[in-house]
């Protein structure tokens, strides 16, 4: 079997409906746009948790900012009937992720927990995945980043500091998921309890707009939230099958 055959075979396997059924978890997130206030606490929480660098004013102006989760803003209407809508945008952990098909070295692939992975030491920095991603949530390290001493003392030891030439993105805080599984094993449990693991953004959200959990558990908060009639996925027509589900904003006049 040639390498290419093996690759495509593996690929088909992942794409077969029901492939994820046999595994333990399928992590998912819901974001209630009717609760989101756009305060950006999630953005800072993510920055602190995942060792995201400060790129500086110049790099920022060149569009090289690093934010695994960001708040997008869309104005609607004109003064005085004007509205501003916020939407937190992060890696959608698509089950049919376009970024995964294009990586020449399989540095990004789908794992058994339904996560879209990014393996930094495998990445060679072609940036193809960022081009293929319709949500624009992949970030490339254009430089080696510096932390002015002693800011580096805050760096999270559970997360790699990425170097120049590497693509990175939201991991659903894999280090926290890993730790929760570890605790479950310590307690002799087979599974992680609902609510036991929360990514940094979910944990800090002051409006409680974000919910995270295992959608294979029908009673989990996230499963129930995903069944809300307001649920939709961004750019659903692209069939990327995201694991991040948004709940529509309710448009009511005072």
């Amino acid at each position: 079997m040639s390498l290419l055959d093996r690759f495509t075979d593996g690929w088909r396997k992942y794409r077969k409906p029901g492939y994820y059924e046999e595994f333990d978890y399928h992590w998912a997130m819901t974001i209630d746009l009717d609760k989101c206030t756009g305060c950006e606490a999630c953005v800072t929480a993510c920055q602190a948790e995942n060792n995201l660098p400060i790129v500086g004013e110049k790099a920022f102006a060149e569009g090289r900012e690093m934010k695994w989760i960001r708040i997008e803003r869309y104005w609607e209407g004109e003064y005085p009937d004007v509205k501003l809508r916020f939407i937190p945008m992060l890696c959608q952990q698509c089950d049919s992720a376009p970024c995964e098909t294009v990586c020449p070295v399989s540095a990004t692939y789908h794992n058994q927990d339904g996560l879209n992975t990014q393996i930094y030491n495998r990445c060679i920095g072609t940036r193809s995945c960022a081009v293929y991603c319709p949500y624009e949530v992949r970030y490339f390290n254009w430089n080696d980043h510096q932390w002015d001493a002693p800011l580096e003392q805050q760096l999270n030891p559970d997360v790699t500091v990425r170097e120049k030439g590497v693509m990175e993105k939201c991991t659903f805080c894999i280090q926290r998921i890993r730790q929760a599984k570890d605790h479950a094993k310590d307690d002799g449990r087979r599974r992680v309890r609902d609510g036991e693991v929360q990514p940094a953004c979910v944990q800090t959200c002051p409006a409680n707009a974000l919910v995270f959990g295992d959608r294979k558990d029908p009673n989990s908060q996230v499963s129930r939230s995903m069944n809300d009639p307001r649920a939709y996925r961004v750019l659903e027509e692209l069939n990327t099958d995201p694991s991040v589900v948004y709940l529509k904003k309710v448009d009511a006049k005072g």
């Binding site: 794992n111 058994q112 927990d113 559970d158 790699t160 894999i174």
Partner: peptide
């Protein structure tokens, strides 16, 4: 279990 998944050991 999942011993060869990259994210089991890479962070």
């Amino acid at each position: 279990e999942h011993g060869t998944d990259c994210w089991t050991c890479h962070k």
